[in-house]
Simulated assay, not measured.
Amino acid sequence: MLEKINGRGAIIGSLFIALILAIIPLPPLADLLRPDWVLVCVFYWTIALPHRSNVGVAFAVGLILDILLGSTLGVRALALSIVSYIAASNFTRLRNFSVWQQALVVGALTGLAKVVVFWAEYLVQDIQLPAGYFYPLVTTTLTWPWIFLLLRKLRRQWKIS
């Protein structure tokens, strides 16, 4: 019973830290280059433990992120749900990729999520595409190997399954 609590706590704790990193105030240039921490965390837990972290978890975390960012409710929840669905339906294949191949997949899914968020916001608010909107694709792709190694070490050290 304690292992399940530790496992759930580790997943929730890492998602909480990712939410904190997503909303922490940064200077304008650093904010423009901020990786999509929540997407990376959701992606990792979905391919590592698809029976514990699934589309429902991604939707709930997305709703929390929408509330924290003050954006249209459900926009990021939709984007994270799509990413989680793609990751969950291909988790066996994605597990066999090298870390750098996974980084390219994470970059592509980040691009998909950014397009979904922009499209949904455009439908609701008629916004324009800001300069540098897709810069987080590069930083998210480059941070994936370190996040992957960190979360895998956490999962193995605490024997989360």
Rank of each mutant, 00 (worst) to 15 (best):
T143N: 08
L151H: 00
A60W: 04
R34Y: 01
A87S: 01
L151G: 11
G132F: 09
S14T: 11
E3H: 02
S71I: 15
T140C: 10
L68A: 15
P136L: 01
G107W: 01
E121K: 06
I20N: 06
T139I: 06
P25V: 10
L49P: 05
Y122H: 09
Y122I: 02
V55N: 02
L78H: 02
V99Y: 10
P145R: 05
E121F: 03
R95K: 12
Y133Q: 01
I12V: 12
L19Y: 14
K4T: 10
L151A: 02
L29V: 04
L149F: 09
I82T: 12
N6D: 00
I67V: 05
A79R: 01
V55C: 14
A58P: 00
Y135T: 01
T140P: 11
I147E: 08
S89E: 03
P27S: 09
T46I: 03
I11Y: 15
T72R: 11
V61I: 05
L94M: 01
S98P: 07
A131T: 05
Y135G: 00
S98W: 12
L2E: 08
I5Q: 13
P25M: 08
P50T: 10
M1N: 15
T143Q: 08
R93E: 13
F134V: 10
L39I: 00
V117W: 02
P145K: 06
W146V: 15
S53H: 07
A87C: 07
G132Y: 00
T139A: 13
M1L: 10
K153L: 04
R52E: 08
L21K: 11
L68D: 09
T140V: 15
G74V: 00
L123A: 13
N96S: 07
Y85R: 07
V75F: 07
R155W: 04
S71P: 03
S81Y: 15
L80S: 14
L33D: 13
V99E: 09
P145G: 03
K159V: 01
L69E: 04
Q157W: 13
W144G: 00
A88D: 02
Y122F: 08
A48I: 04
A113M: 02
L32Q: 13
S89M: 03
S161A: 10
L129Y: 01
I20G: 00
E121W: 06
I12G: 15
F134H: 03
I23T: 14
F43R: 13
V40D: 15
A18F: 06
W37G: 02
L26W: 11
R156A: 04
